Simulated assay, not measured.
Amino acid sequence: MKQEHLEQLENVIEAVKSRQIENVFFIACGGSMASLSLGDYFFTKETDVPSFVYTSNEFIHRDPKSLGQNSLVILRSHSGTTPETVKAASFARQKGALTVAISMETDSPLCQSSEYIIHYNYKDGSDAIDGETGMFYSLIFQLLNVFAPNEKFARVVEKLALLEDLYTKNREKFAEVADTFGKKNKRENIIYTMASGAYIHQAYSFTSCLLMEMLWIHSNAIHSGEYFHGPFEVTDYDVPFLLILGEGPSRPLDERALSFAKKFSEKVEVVDVETLIYEGVDEDLKEYFGPAIIGVVLRLYADALAEHTGHPLSVRRYMWKMDY
């Protein structure tokens, strides 16, 4: 990891240690919120520190009563220019909270509005450890080690050096099956996604940012545990589902949903997290690395749909083209 990134992480950790942090807020929009939600998942699973996720605008309008001087607010925007998130940073600082911005642009409005910065490299040839997931994971697991000290969190940070190799090997493994998916589903107008646990956030990102935003395919991210409480009524032989079969405590929820969906739909695609390549990762750390790797795999599915539909992922109708 680059020295500047190590120093940024160290500054945040020291700032957290110097204050009596009583709760943590993860604030962002869209795909950035989905990525931060993983931090909330691990915090609620591993610590007794109250943790919350808000889309930026609601964070401001709801004005949580527990937000104050003993709060840690972690915000993310890829470009650092998302207006709602920039305002959320200023709002949190006005409340006296400790604010940390995660972005690829250190001179962005978000970073200028926050006390501390976690910068990540993007498409500059850097290793994954200095990229989006590597920097976010480094931050989260170092924070976990502050609030609930455990030697395994230090091992996660150490193993992040494997990310680049793991990404490459899993891309190679899933390239063909993803391409087949794209070919089979190139004329589908709607594709539902299902997941649970840590993976529901990846399903949300895949649904909202890749299928709906980039490919203009109707979709909905369905929590496997909620599938039987309404959504399963749309299941039919010609209705496509992409289901992330997770690894961890909520896998039984996914297995139950999968069993039902396969009975009535002929278009169920399964991405089984247990089949990912975890080479070099300790057995007890797989649950932390799975969500990072699955994001790379799901991107292959989106790329394949783009290739076979002839719809580039860069095309937008409204985003960045008008005021909204």
Rank of each mutant, 00 (worst) to 15 (best):
K2Y: 12
K2E: 15
Q3W: 00
Q3T: 13
Q8C: 04
Q20W: 01
Q20Y: 03
Q20K: 13
E22M: 03
N23H: 06
F26S: 05
G31N: 02
M33R: 12
A34M: 03
G39W: 02
E46M: 07
E46C: 07
V49G: 06
S51Q: 05
F59C: 06
S66Y: 06
N70V: 02
N70M: 02
N70W: 00
L75G: 07
R76N: 11
G80K: 04
P83D: 12
V86L: 10
A88M: 02
A89R: 02
I102C: 11
E105R: 01
C111R: 00
S114A: 15
E115N: 08
Y116M: 11
Y120I: 01
Y122H: 09
Y122R: 04
D127H: 14
I129T: 10
D130I: 00
M135S: 12
F136L: 13
Y137R: 01
L139S: 01
L143F: 04
L144F: 01
N145F: 06
N145M: 12
V146R: 06
V146K: 07
F147D: 05
F147G: 06
E151Q: 13
A154G: 14
K159W: 00
E164M: 03
L166C: 10
K169A: 14
F174V: 06
E176A: 13
E176L: 09
F181G: 08
F181W: 10
R187E: 15
E188P: 06
I190L: 15
I190C: 14
H201K: 07
F206K: 02
S208R: 03
W216A: 12
I217F: 05
H218E: 14
I222N: 05
E233T: 11
D236Q: 12
D236Y: 02
I244D: 08
G246D: 12
R251V: 04
R251Q: 14
P252R: 00
A261M: 13
F264I: 07
S265L: 08
E269T: 14
E269I: 00
V270C: 11
E274D: 15
E274M: 07
I277W: 10
D282G: 02
K286V: 03
K286F: 03
K286E: 10
F289Y: 12
P291H: 07
P291K: 06
A292S: 13
Y301N: 09
Y301L: 09
A306G: 13
A306L: 10
G310P: 05
S314F: 03
S314K: 09
R317C: 03
M322W: 04
M322Y: 08
